[in-house]
Design a protein around this nucleic acid. Structure first.
Length: 485
DNA sequence: TGGTTATTAAT
DNA sequence: TTAATAACC
């Protein structure tokens, strides 16, 4: 039997700055490049067609480049262990190389079973640290230094010329790859390193000058922000690749404020993933278990209204519809959507987190859950930020252009009512041929009242002894101790 | 990178 | 009376 190594791609769909691929190639053995679509992940509620499509585009982009080296990524659609078992029957597998994944429970459990499989068959599984996320830390002491070390390290570009092609026998591995995964969709960003690089170059050359000014605006942010999030989430680009490009470009401009603001957000990226890496129960439970006793309501009608953009609050509804259609939303509006669900509608964060995971093309578990819980106010260490959608609307979409783009029912509503259509009198509704409650819903909950109730409850609960005790634990584990407060 | 309300300072 | 600031949720 032929001895081979396996390079198992997960959320690292690229060929540049790829340490495991480099190590696999340099080992000297022929390396099988492998990607596996897993049915158990495909059926998980966090994932959506948009993700499988993005992955397909990423793989195609890799295979396009690999043509020059007479090889391809082998793509399967079956459970990982089934694929590994069949490969083991065909080859003498020496090592499996991959990146460490900070994922949801399904992928974590799968990794544990892969580890047992490897142990049982004397296969060495060599995992490499992903970006600046460090496995096995007990607290954050020294983590900032590790981040610096990673970000200032050199890129590791594998020598693809050394790849030795492998004849793969016909294998009976699971299912066809659905045609819908291979069909591009114009409204979503296209996957692949080449596309990611084009976004990056365009950002630094043409768009970053509006970054700080437009970052909070639902419409303008779509152009002024980098739009690199899906390429980072799926590993089309490495974090330091983006960071270094930013540093290089910063040297060429006079005003560095935008670069500074952008790079500070690149810093936050690994900070949150590290938090989830060290506290993966956040996928299911409140980080601060003191909040378990603060009960939320369960109202499926409210939840459905939120999901479908039918809450009666124009900016909330526009954002929800937009993210469903396009997979992207800027940070502030994401925070507002979550704030409305968990504070005004007083719903648990879990179902909302699952839904938006599905909708965000850039779904990154390690950022998603910590952010969601912070916004839901269940960490006990962050101040609760409750967004007023009317104020956000007046501040960041004053002309209602974004709102009207996503809520055509409001097309007839004049600008003075676009943020608060419920304030139109029946005479004005007749005048503008718009009927509240017919053309567009009345607000499903009163804004000021629900906000006050939520604020009072959340803040009263801050003094709960378990919240305080947990707060201390969380601070010690997840924040930088050498800092004051 | 919140919002609301009470308090104080500035006209 | 209003703008700025602090306190509180």
């Amino acid at each position: 039997m032929q001895s081979i190594n396996i390079l198992w791609f997960k959320r690292d769909l690229r060929l540049t700055d790829h340490v495991p691929l480099h190590r696999a190639i340099e080992s000297g053995l022929p390396t099988l490049l492998l990607y596996i679509y897993e049915p158990s992940l495909v059926s998980a509620p966090e994932y959506d067609l948009r993700h499988w499509r993005f992955i397909w585009e990423s793989l195609e982009s890799m295979n396009q480049e690999l043509k020059n080296y007479n090889t391809q990524v082998s793509i399967f659609h079956d459970e990982v262990l089934n694929v590994f078992h069949q490969l083991k029957d065909q080859f003498n597998i020496t090592s499996v190389y991959s990146y460490e994944e900070t994922g949801i429970k399904i992928t974590h459990d799968r990794d544990k079973s892969v580890q047992s499989f490897c142990n049982a068959h004397k296969i060495k599984w060599q995992e490499t640290q992903t970006n600046a996320v460090v496995r096995g830390l007990k607290n954050r002491t020294g983590w900032a230094k590790l981040w610096e070390k990673y970000i200032n390290g050199s890129m590791v570009n594998p020598n693809l010329r050394k790849l030795k092609p492998i004849e793969l026998p016909t294998m009976n591995c699971g299912y066809e790859i659905p045609a819908s995964w291979k069909t591009p969709h114009a409204k979503f960003q296209k996957g692949g390193t080449a596309t990611g690089l084009r976004y990056m170059q365009d950002f630094f050359q043409n768009r970053i000058h509006n970054y700080s000014q437009h970052i909070s605006k639902p419409l303008e942010s779509r152009r002024a922000c980098s739009r690199l999030s899906p390429y980072l989430a799926w590993g089309n680009l490495s974090l330091r690749q983006v960071f270094m490009a930013q540093e290089d470009h910063k040297q060429t401009v006079k005003y560095k404020r935008n670069h500074h603001n952008f790079s500070s957000r690149l810093r936050w990226h690994c900070h949150f993933i590290q938090k989830f890496e060290m506290e993966d129960a956040m996928e299911f439970r409140n980080l601060n278990r003191g909040y378990n006793t603060l009960k939320r309501s369960e109202n499926s009608e409210h939840f459905e209204a939120w999901k479908n953009g039918q809450t009666g609050y124009p900016l909330v509804d526009a954002c929800m519809r937009c993210v469903t259609e396009t997979g992207y939303m800027n940070f502030r509006m994401r925070a507002m959507m979550v704030s409305f669900l968990t504070q005004n509608l007083w719903q648990n964060w879990k179902d909302g987190a699952t839904w938006l995971a599905q909708m965000f093309l850039d779904f990154e578990p390690g950022i998603h859950y910590p952010q969601f819980q912070m916004q839901a106010g269940v960490t006990g260490i962050n101040t609760v930020r409750m967004y007023n959608p009317v104020k956000q609307s007046q501040d960041h979409d004053p002309q209602g252009i974004f709102i009207k783009q996503w809520i055509p029912e409001l097309n007839n509503v004049p600008i003075q009512f676009i943020h608060e259509p419920w304030k139109m009198t029946s005479m004005e509704q007749t005048l503008y041929q718009f009927k509240l409650g017919v053309d567009y819903p009345k607000p499903i909950v009163p804004l000021a009242e629900t906000a006050k109730i939520a604020r009072d409850k959340i803040w009263a609960h801050r003094d709960d002894p378990i919240v305080l005790k947990e707060g201390k634990r969380i601070l010690a584990k997840h924040t930088f101790r050498n800092r004051r407060n």
